[in-house]
C-alpha cells in the first residue's frame, strides 16, 4: 500500500437537505507512534502523533479535538454537523512535530 503521512479524506452524505444533522467521517494517514516501541534493530521509535484537530464549517470553527498517541494509527473520527449553510467543511490535523495536514469537503444541498 502506498502510504503518505498526512493523506486525508472527509466523507459526507451525497444528498444533504438544508438543516439536517449529517454524519461526517474523516481519516488521516499517520503512524501515531507512542514512543514506547523499538524498531527491529532495537532503536527506540520516538513519539510521533497527531495532537490537534480543528473542524471549520463555512468559516466558523465548530470543533477542536486534542489527541495523544493513544489514538489508533491512521486516526478515524466520526462526528455530526447541522448542515444549515452551503460551504466548505475543512479539517486541519497538526502533529507533534508541527506538520499540518488539511482536507476540505463541500457541503451542498440537494435540489430535490
Amino acid at each position: 500500500m502506498n502510504r503518505t503521512i498526512g493523506d486525508a479524506r472527509i466523507r459526507v452524505p451525497s444528498r444533504i437537505q438544508q438543516g439536517e444533522i449529517i454524519p461526517v467521517s474523516a481519516i488521516v494517514q499517520h503512524p501515531m507512534d507512542t514512543g514506547f516501541f523499538r524498531s527491529a534493530d532495537g532503536q527506540p521509535i520516538p513519539a510521533y502523533f497527531i495532537k490537534d484537530v480543528t473542524v471549520t464549517y463555512a468559516g466558523r470553527q465548530v470543533a477542536h479535538f486534542m489527541w495523544t498517541s493513544g489514538i489508533s494509527r491512521d486516526p478515524i473520527v466520526t462526528f455530526t454537523l447541522v448542515a444549515d449553510r452551503e460551504g466548505p467543511l475543512s479539517m486541519r490535523w497538526v502533529d507533534n512535530k508541527g506538520a499540518a495536514f488539511e482536507q476540505t469537503a463541500q457541503i451542498a444541498f440537494s435540489t430535490t
Binding site: 444533522i21 507512542t34 470543533a63 489508533s72 478515524i76 473520527v77 455530526t80
Partner: peptide, 29 residues
C-alpha cells in the same frame, strides 16, 4: 480517560451546538 494506560488522559473533544448532537466515534489504543 483510560485508567491504566501510560497516558490516561487520552483525548478531549471541544464541541459546539453547530454539531447538532453529541455523537463521536473513534478508535483508541
Amino acid at each position: 480517560i483510560v485508567d491504566h494506560n501510560p497516558d490516561p488522559y487520552l483525548a478531549a473533544f471541544d464541541v459546539t451546538p453547530a454539531m447538532g448532537k453529541l455523537s463521536l466515534q473513534f478508535r483508541i489504543k
